[in-house]
Amino acid sequence: MSKSRLLTRAGEAVLLIVLCLIIFGPMTGLALWSIALRWYWPHALPQVIGPDYWLQALGLQKSLAIGAVSIMGAFKTSLIIALISVVLVMAVAIPAGYVLAKYSIPWKSAILLLFLLPQAFPQQPVFVNLLLLFNKLGLAGTVPGVILVHLIVGLVFAVWISSATFKSIPPELEEAARSVGASRVTAFFRVTLPLAAPGLLASAVFVFLTSLDEFTGTFFIGLPFVTTLPMLLYSSSGYNLQFASVIAIILLVPSILFMVIIERFLKAEYIGGMGI
């Protein structure tokens, strides 16, 4: 009995090691490249390392020798777009999520279907045709145009997560507030909304991250005039691996950090939409 138990433990340990190699291997490559000043094969590790690309990227050092520029401009653009997207998306998604959770309304299946379509079909053709539309409207290559695209990408998740959050709040609480004279609006703001706050906050963080990491929509609508962090990462990945790796890590850290915190609020299916 104990021999087979030992074997099981050994098998588990092997599984953990293989898993760690597969998961952390590519991440290690990124970390090494971000500090590699010289790394010629067949050397297994960089020959010269240093923080130069990090300093350059963060605008703390200006050297023409290593061909990296500051990311601060792109960082600001990304941050502004993400913050505006979050505010707009949540303003629209909270009422919609509430209605879908609590009311029986006509055409409900059709409305649910509309909010599921982006998850079920590839989105790239939609961005291509938005580009046509935005060309006519003068929105292509502008920050407002990119915000509109991020709005659509984030809205779907925000509506589903808010709806699931409102569904989880027992309606008796709102009913009780109304039975002592609170109007429906007061009951919503004083009772339901505070209870839903953690879930809604998770949803807002989720929208923020999808906007920060969004690539395909920004590629079609934003290029070549709107440079967000993912666009800067893409354009430098061809010629400057170190600089691209620095940006990749800067995008990676908030994603992992925030998502580990908010994960328990999210259904598995929504998390799959990350980083399209």
Partner: peptide, 27 residues
């Protein structure tokens, strides 16, 4: 060990495709 496997396996979920692409570019 199972707990650690449970913590490690899920990391890729949160990593955006553009970062995965750059990772694989170097890896």
């Amino acid at each position: 060990i199972a707990k650690m496997v449970g913590a490690v396996y899920r990391l890729p979920i949160f990593i955006p495709f553009v970062v995965v692409a750059q990772m694989m570019n170097t890896f």
